[in-house]
Design a protein around this nucleic acid. Structure first.
Length: 467
DNA sequence: TCTGGGGTCCTAGGACCC
DNA sequence: TCTGGGGTCCTAGGACCC
């Protein structure tokens, strides 16, 4: 870990009531009025409430139905225009990158800047105040009137706390050495990683403030909360936070999910929803040029309990057919009979390399392996069509790492012949898995043929190299 | 009209391998 | 031969964040 900073060189920026502010900027009739952006359906929740709406008690994460009860007639409830938010967000992030190359975007409306990584600058209180004022002014001009709040301190935690202290359109500098006096009287909820559950457990021990927490020994905290969280609480309660500002973080997972207006119990209807979700997920994977190994299906039951099922393939895929088959299998292992309110699907184990899997019907198959390195045939083989020859599986066995081999899974009752540099044909039922080397941006030349294909019926592999 | 959508990290147990 | 231990991978669930 890097050493603790001696100067206040971490800046945290938070756009004020961001979604609502964009709506008020773009629609003058909304200015000065309560605006709530979020889900507008029967099960929606609030993303952002304008400051006018907050006066009536509307809050982020509150059910929209509750916000409707609290807010007066004339309150605007809007579904959100994420492209517009993204555009303004990008404008702001560019301004931050003018300050320093090390900008960590936490979300669409929030970022950290490592001022020490930028050009040399005046880090005295006066210099930082001028920097923040200039930044906030430039954000207002560049975005057409959006305001931001800024915190500057010696660590990410204190900078974030600072940006909260003078919202909206405020700036707070927490000077080096004053962290404890600022932090000590605050609720433990001010600490990163302390949510409702942890706060409740601390409360049971009589710990309310950060100063209370700082008096608890690390041994006790580790015994209660486990190694990672116990150690983290110990350090953060003493305002010891040397987490780096990280400008480039790679995605670890991608997921999509949907809450239904009414619970769904019908398996057929759920499979149709699942297919739609998988299509959205695969399209996002494709745009990001990513492939994943592990598929996870998530279900929120009617009673809000959550169940996940996951499965991992030998290699990564971006194919909606493959992900969809995995997802349907995983969903099948979940009891949905009482009705579910949410269905989701995600992929993790992301790479920039791909593998494809083909579903074969019963009968003969032929697979062009021109750019592939491996074929897998499943254990169960259905009845072979008339005339198909059956030979012993080849003796060749390769580990998946072998680049030029053909691997036959034990029990596969197929025959295969290799022609030239690489394709295989045989008969079987089930799956053929084809692994591609290197990044793949377009579908490869993989073709399957039904058992009634004349070329196969003739006993010869079709010559598709002409095609 | 109770409770979104998209993420991250951690823990614990079991399988498997050395 | 028996027993034990460590490391890694996978799965499921939970807490947390914006």
């Amino acid at each position: 870990m890097p050493p603790a900073r001696r100067e206040s060189s971490v800046l945290h920026l938070d756009l004020d009531a961001f979604f609502a502010a964009v709506e008020q900027r773009d629609k003058p009739s909304l200015r000065g009025r309560p605006v709530v952006v979020g889900g507008v359906g029967p099960r929606g929740v609030v993303s952002t409430a304008s400051y006018e709406a907050r006066k009536f008690g509307a809050r982020s994460a509150m059910p929209t139905s509750e916000a409707r009860r609290r807010c007066p007639a004339g309150t605007a409830f809007l579904g959100g225009r994420f492209d517009a938010y993204r555009m303004s967000s990008q404008v702001v992030m560019e301004l931050l990158r003018d300050l320093s190359p090390v900008v960590e975007q936490v979300s669409v409306d929030e970022a950290y800047v490592d001022l020490a990584a930028g050009p040399p600058r005046d880090l005295t209180p006066a210099g930082l105040a001028a920097l923040a004022e200039d930044l906030m002014e430039r954000i207002q001009v560049a975005t057409g009137g959006l305001t931001a709040s800024v915190g500057i301190a010696t660590s990410k935690m204190m900078a974030k706390i600072g940006s909260e202290l003078n919202k909206p359109a405020g700036m707070t500098l927490i000077e080096p050495g004053t962290e404890q006096e600022v932090l000590g009287p605050m609720s433990v909820r001010a600490i990163a990683g302390v949510g409702p559950a942890t706060a409740a457990r601390l409360h049971a021990f009589g710990v309310e403030t950060v100063a209370d927490l700082a008096r608890v020994s690390e041994g006790d905290l580790v015994a209660i909360f486990g190694l990672a969280q116990g150690a983290s609480l110990t350090r953060l309660a003493r305002a010891e936070d040397n987490r780096q500002v990280e400008s480039q973080r790679e995605a670890k997972s991608l997921s999509v999910e949907e809450t239904f207006d009414v619970d769904i119990a019908d398996p057929g209807a759920l499979e149709r929803e699942l297919d739609l979700l998988v299509a959205r997920l695969a399209s996002r994977l494709g745009r990001a040029a990513l492939f994943g190994r592990t598929t996870t299906v998530k279900v929120r039951q009617h009673d809000f309990s959550q169940v996940t099922r996951s499965g991992t393939l030998p290699w990564a895929t971006g194919d909606p057919a493959v992900i969809g088959r995995q997802a349907r299998r995983l969903l099948g292992a979940i009891d949905v009979s009482a009705g579910i309110r949410l269905l989701g699907v995600g992929v993790s184990g992301l790479t920039t390399h791909a593998q494809e899997e083909l579903e074969l019907g019963e009968g003969l198959f032929a697979v062009d392996l021109a750019i592939s390195t491996e074929v897998e045939v499943p254990d169960s083989i259905g009845a072979l069509p008339g005339g198909a020859r059956v030979v012993e599986p080849p003796e060749r066995r390769h580990t998946p790492e072998v680049a030029d081999g053909v691997e036959w899974r034990p029990g596969a009752d197929v025959h295969h012949e290799e022609y030239g540099a690489g394709w295989v044909w045989g008969s079987g039922l089930g799956r053929v898995t084809v692994r591609f080397e290197g990044p793949r941006t377009a579908p490869g030349p993989v073709r399957t043929f039904a058992s009634d294909d004349p070329a196969l019926a003739a006993g010869d592999p079709p010559d598709w190299r002409d095609g």
